[in-house]
């Protein structure tokens, strides 16, 4: 226990130092409480949850590190987290990352799937507009993430950039450890096809994103 606390404390100290160097917003977070106590509350709060759903309550190693460091894992943790996440990315076997931008727009618009109010067959979407401006004609967009207007055009429709974008949507933490963006492919929330379609929405010269 003591060991974990010391690790968390030194991680926090290093994290604070790093926060000054990085532009990423750091949360002014206190880690004064013993994580074992927090886990006890968490277990009590989802006590009547089915075993299948309980898996979502437990944190994976990356979620744990990101939480413990206020999303600014220091030095060795940063490298370890990045390497762990990079290793999860599965690219399309034929190398083509560009799908259909029209279907990508549907994926970006849809905000359902995976909620306890949904059924297992409820269509899933990335709900990208919840956080990003994407196609300029859609005025109902959120601002938690950056605007993606002109995304492919700005990157000169570069093939390597498109591949990197596939990786970003598949697992945002393979690009930026502790990114706030969901790891859609890592969690198998979106299919490879859906992720390709979203990359199409961002990279196809015919997509309204680039018009």
């Amino acid at each position: 226990m003591t060991h974990i606390r010391v690790t968390a404390l030194s991680a926090l100290a290093a994290g604070m130092a790093l926060a000054a160097l990085l532009a990423a917003p750091a949360h002014a977070q206190q880690q004064a409480i013993d994580p074992v106590i927090v886990d006890r509350y968490v277990a009590a709060t989802w006590k009547s949850t089915s075993d299948e759903w309980k898996a979502r309550v437990a944190q994976d190693e990356t979620q744990r590190i990101c939480t413990a460091t206020g999303n600014n894992p220091p030095g060795a943790d940063f490298d370890k987290t990045l390497a762990r996440e990079v290793a999860t990315v599965v690219y399309p076997t034929d190398g083509n990352v560009l799908g259909d931008w029209k279907r990508g727009e549907q994926v970006a618009q849809r905000g359902t799937g995976g909620q306890f109010s949904d059924t297992p067959t409820t269509a899933r979407g990335g709900n990208c507009y919840a956080c990003h401006q994407i196609a300029p004609k859609e005025l109902s967009y959120g601002t938690l993430g950056p605007s993606l207007v002109g995304y492919g055009r700005d990157r000169k429709y570069d093939k390597d950039e498109a591949k990197k974008t596939f990786a970003k949507v598949f697992n945002a933490m393979a690009i930026v450890p502790c990114s706030q963006m969901p790891r859609f492919g890592y969690h198998k929330f979106l299919t490879e096809e859906q992720i390709k379609d979203v990359v199409g929405l961002l990279f196809d010269p015919e997509s309204p994103v680039n018009k």
Partner: peptide, 13 residues
């Protein structure tokens, strides 16, 4: 406070 910052589940939120 700790639960407010605790990331989990299939959206990492």
């Amino acid at each position: 406070e700790a639960m407010f910052y605790r990331r989990s589940a299939i959206m990492d939120f």
